[in-house]
């Protein structure tokens, strides 16, 4: 007999409302209960990871991949420009605001996660490798 490949999840299940998230402190929280401080504190104690602030500069439909949106960020103190293509329902965590996506309606349908509308000017939580001294 042959083993069937495991079905790939349609959506990342860690964004599903009720998903259990482990912080770097060991504390467990539901994804919908996370707050900015949880990410900041986790990065502080994780060692090797650093929280960056990523400012949303532009949001537009992806030209290479129809159905996705291209998010243009400036990242960190260096304000490096980074562009990523994501589905419109993909949630980002905005400092002081919480979960936000380009399509809160789709996020609610697919994940059950309440979101704000992600907009240009929002400051998202992102991570990067901590630079060694």
């Amino acid at each position: 007999s042959s083993l069937a490949p495991a079905p790939a999840p349609c959506n990342p299940s860690h964004f599903m409302k009720g998903a259990i998230i482990q912080l770097a402190t060991g504390e467990l929280k539901r994804v919908e209960d996370l707050q900015t401080q949880d990410f900041v504190r986790s990065a502080e104690v994780s060692g090797g990871l650093k929280i960056d602030s990523s400012l949303v500069m532009d949001i537009r439909g992806s030209q290479q991949r129809p159905g996705l949106v291209s998010l243009h960020f400036t990242v960190g103190e260096q304000q490096s420009k980074v562009t990523i293509d994501v589905p419109p329902e993909h949630p980002f965590f905005v400092f002081g605001q919480g979960w936000s996506s380009c399509s809160p309606e789709r996020t609610a349908q697919l994940y059950g996660l309440a979101c704000h509308h992600l907009q240009v000017g929002d400051m998202c939580v992102s991570i990067t490798l901590q630079q060694q001294p």
């Binding site: 482990q22 990871l49 990523s54």
Partner: peptide, 25 residues
Amino acid sequence: NVEPRSVPVFPWHSLVPFLEPSQSG
């Protein structure tokens, strides 16, 4: 009796994007 199912636990860093600033410049 229903056996309790193991609940998946996800690490916090799986929720936020890893955005590596470019080293150029």
